[in-house]
Amino acid sequence: MTVRSGDTMSGIATRTGLWPLSAWRVPSGNLNLIYPGNIVTYRGKAIAVSGSTAMGSRVHVVKSGETLSGIFGANGWQHVAQLDNLANPNLIYPGQRLRY
Rank of each mutant, 00 (worst) to 15 (best):
T2P: 02
V3C: 12
V3S: 06
R4V: 01
G6T: 03
G6R: 13
G6S: 06
D7P: 00
T8Q: 02
A13M: 09
A13H: 14
T14A: 08
L21D: 09
L21V: 09
A23D: 10
A23W: 10
W24Y: 03
W24R: 14
W24I: 02
R25Y: 00
P27R: 04
N30V: 06
L31H: 13
N32H: 11
G37W: 05
N38V: 02
I39C: 05
I39K: 15
Y42W: 04
G44Q: 09
K45Y: 06
A46W: 04
S50D: 13
G51V: 03
G51E: 06
S52Y: 15
A54T: 14
G56F: 03
G56Y: 04
V59N: 07
H60W: 07
H60G: 04
H60N: 02
V61H: 08
V62K: 07
V62E: 14
V62A: 02
G65S: 09
G65F: 09
T67G: 09
T67F: 00
T67P: 00
G70T: 10
G70W: 07
I71T: 02
I71V: 15
F72Q: 08
G73I: 03
G73A: 08
A74G: 04
A74M: 12
A74R: 13
G76Y: 00
Q78V: 04
A81N: 11
L83E: 11
N85S: 12
N85M: 07
L86E: 06
N88K: 11
P89Y: 11
N90H: 05
L91P: 00
I92C: 05
I92H: 03
Y93R: 12
P94G: 02
G95H: 11
G95M: 07
Q96F: 06
Q96L: 01
Q96H: 11
L98F: 11
L98P: 05
